[in-house]
Amino acid sequence: MAKLPTCRWGIITTGLISSWFVADLVLPRPDAKAHHIIQAIGASSLRKSQAFADTHLKDTPHHKPALYGSYAEVCADASVDCVYIGSPHGVHARDCLAAIAAGKNVLCEKAFAINASEARSVFDAARRAGVYVAEAMWLRHRPLVADLRKLLYEEKVIGDVFRATSDFQMYVDMKNAPATSRYRDLELGAGSLLDIGIYPLTWALLMLDSKLPGDGNGEGEGEGETPRIMAAQSFVEGIEVTTSIVLHYASSGRQGVVTSTTERKKGASQIVATIDGTDGFVEVEGGAPSHPKSFTVYPKWTGDEKPQGKRYDYESAQQGFIYEADNTALDLAAGRKESAVMPWSETIRVMEIMDEVRRQGGCVYPRERV
C-alpha cells in the first residue's frame, strides 16, 4: 500500500451519495490502485458531521477524520488533497468555486452543474487556479463499461451498433414533498433529467459513440459526436417529472432512446440498457442505470425463442464509486488537471445536450430567467 498513490479526501455534505462514496473507499480490497483516506468531513453543522462519521466510519478506527460544521473549513484544511462534493446539483457550481478559490482539487458529483454555462465558469476558474476538477460520473469509470465498449467497437461482437435504449424510473410523491426537497426545489435543480435522466443519457452516449475520451478502443480515441436531439418533457406542479429523448447520429444513423421519470416505481432488478447491432444485441442488467451489475451478449434473434447469450458478471463488494476515486488519485499523482475518462470537454458536451433537451421540453430554472 505504501507504493500506491495516496489521496486524502475532504467530504462536503453528508447525504446519501456521500455515504455511498465513503463506504466504497473504506472497504479493504486486494487489487487497490490507490490508498484513500477520509481526511475531513464537512456539513451544515458539526452534529451532522459527527453523526456521519459515527455511522459510516465506525469500522475504520485507524484514522479519525477532522469534523467540521461548514464546507469552508474542509476547503481550508491543509491536509485535504481533494474535495468530494456531494451536494445537490443546483449548488455544485457554488461549492466547486469555493473549493477552487481555496486551492483545492475537486471531484464533483453529477450533474456537474445546472447548465453548460455554469460548468464552463467552474472550469475557467480551475484553469486559472491550476487545480484538478472532474465530474464524478462513476458510470464511465466502471470496468464493465470499458469491457463492453471493447466488445462492441474492437471485437464487434454484435456487428455494427445501430441503436441503444435506457430508462431510469423511480417514484417521488411530488405533491406531498416539502418545498425544500431537492426533488421539488427548482433552485436545487429539481426534475428527473439532471437527477436520474443523466444516467440513461450517459448509457446512450457510451454505447453509440465509437470514439470517447480515455478508452482508445475500436475506431480510435477522441471526442464524442453530438447527436441531433428530439425531446419532450412533462411536469407536475411546475416540476419536470418525465423526460423522453431520441438521439440521432448523422454520421452513422445510430439512434438512442432515453427516458426518465419520477412518476413510476421500478422493480428490484431490471434490464437497465440495451444495445442493438446488426449481428446481435446486448442487455445490461442491474438495479438501475446507475447500478449495472452484469451484461449479456446475444446473437441475432431470428427465431421464436430468445437465443442463448454469454453473461459477463461484475458483482462486487463496492457499489462502484471506488473506480472514479482510484482514477482521481492516479490523475493527481500524475499531475493531471483533468480526468482522462471524463475531461472537461465531455462534461460540457453532456451539459449542452441536457440544455437542449430542456429547451425543447420547457424546463427552465429560476436563475436562467435572469
Rank of each mutant, 00 (worst) to 15 (best):
179 A>L: 15
179 A>D: 15
181 S>E: 09
182 R>S: 15
183 Y>E: 08
184 R>H: 11
184 R>T: 15
185 D>V: 08
185 D>I: 06
186 L>E: 05
187 E>A: 14
189 G>R: 06
189 G>D: 12
191 G>I: 12
191 G>E: 13
193 L>T: 07
193 L>P: 08
193 L>N: 10
194 L>W: 09
195 D>A: 13
195 D>L: 14
195 D>V: 15
197 G>H: 02
198 I>C: 04
198 I>K: 03
200 P>H: 03
201 L>P: 08
202 T>V: 00
203 W>G: 07
204 A>F: 05
204 A>M: 08
204 A>W: 04
205 L>P: 01
208 L>K: 03
208 L>T: 05
209 D>P: 09
210 S>G: 05
212 L>G: 07
212 L>W: 03
214 G>M: 11
214 G>Y: 07
215 D>A: 07
216 G>C: 08
216 G>M: 08
217 N>V: 15
218 G>D: 09
218 G>N: 08
219 E>P: 02
220 G>Q: 07
220 G>T: 05
220 G>R: 06
221 E>M: 10
223 E>T: 10
224 G>K: 01
225 E>R: 00
226 T>W: 03
230 M>G: 07
230 M>Q: 13
233 Q>H: 02
233 Q>G: 10
234 S>W: 13
234 S>Y: 07
234 S>G: 05
234 S>E: 14
234 S>K: 10
235 F>H: 05
235 F>G: 03
236 V>G: 00
237 E>F: 01
238 G>Q: 04
238 G>N: 04
238 G>S: 05
239 I>H: 11
240 E>T: 06
240 E>M: 10
241 V>H: 10
241 V>Q: 09
241 V>D: 12
241 V>N: 12
241 V>G: 08
241 V>K: 11
243 T>Q: 08
243 T>Y: 03
243 T>F: 02
244 S>E: 13
244 S>N: 11
245 I>K: 01
245 I>E: 06
246 V>C: 08
247 L>I: 06
247 L>N: 05
248 H>F: 13
248 H>N: 11
249 Y>S: 02
251 S>G: 02
254 R>K: 12
254 R>L: 00
255 Q>Y: 01
255 Q>D: 11
257 V>S: 09
257 V>Y: 15
259 T>A: 13
260 S>C: 12
260 S>D: 13
260 S>A: 12
261 T>M: 07
261 T>H: 03
263 E>A: 14
263 E>Q: 13
264 R>T: 13
265 K>C: 11
266 K>Q: 12
266 K>G: 15
266 K>R: 15
267 G>E: 11
268 A>S: 15
268 A>F: 11
269 S>W: 14
269 S>Y: 14
270 Q>D: 15
270 Q>W: 00
271 I>E: 11
271 I>L: 01
272 V>P: 00
273 A>D: 06
274 T>F: 00
274 T>D: 11
275 I>W: 04
275 I>Q: 01
276 D>A: 12
276 D>W: 02
277 G>I: 04
279 D>F: 06
280 G>I: 09
280 G>P: 05
281 F>V: 03
283 E>I: 01
284 V>D: 06
287 G>F: 01
287 G>A: 13
288 A>C: 05
288 A>E: 14
288 A>P: 02
289 P>E: 01
290 S>E: 06
290 S>I: 00
290 S>A: 09
290 S>Q: 09
294 S>R: 11
295 F>N: 08
296 T>R: 07
297 V>R: 02
297 V>K: 02
